[in-house]
Amino acid sequence: MVSHLKELYRFRDLLLSLAIRDIKVRYRQSLLGIAWAILQPLAFMAIFTLVFSKFGRMSSDGIPYPVFSYTGLVPWVLFATAISLSVNSVAANMGLVKKIYFPREVFPLGVIIGCLVDFLIASILVGVLMSLYKLPVTWQILWLPWIIAIEIGLLVGISLITSAVNVFYRDVKYILPIVVQLGLFVTPVIYSSSSVPSKWRPFYMLNPMAVVIENVRKVVLHGQPPEFGSLLCATAIIAIFICVAYLYFKRAEVKFADLI
């Protein structure tokens, strides 16, 4: 594991190059360019606000619905795009994989870094919306990096496994978007977790993205401290998950180029 990480460190510039490539290629030849990073969650927010605040009432824990849903959508869009883009990242680069050696995890990791840039740009609007709705920013926001780190860890683990399995079974890239779509309904993105019946809550909070988004809202919008118990628990589980995923990826990696 240590030797794998050392090698990955040696190829850190390649990782960076691939991330830059992903971002540049994504927005080149589009009129609005990088603005799409904001427009995507913003469009979702507009739709959900229209549907849930006009047609049906949706509990948003006393926060104005647009800023409530946008704050949940930004980490969710990061999750959904990173998962659906990284799954095919190795398979789409088979030409390179068969010709030149470098640690293959640079492909899924590069995708995640590229998506993080979008995420950071989209996050700016959260601040704008908060000042519009006069929501105060508190010191609790300093917990935010930890919470986002948990989400990134989750993304790293999932993308390492899915991108490797996808090389052998292309089914994965078809299944995953469906799973991500369904995930939106079991994660408190467009509704509040307080509307989940309390007897289901323990199961509901097994979803790591539920933990992430719930706590993001707590520290950003409510100015409350995060739920330390669930964050510590999630950190430990995801640390183990990343190790398992990485070891699996490195074992699968040597077989990639053998597939003709």
Binding site: F11, L14, L16, I20, R21, V25, R28, Y101
Partner: peptide, 29 residues
Amino acid sequence: ALIEVGAGFHPDLTGRENIFLNGTVMGLT
């Protein structure tokens, strides 16, 4: 390994950008 010339070139990127991309693929920093 001198196996492929221009490995990893992306058609949408400029020559300058591709030098960095291709160079890092070849193991340069």
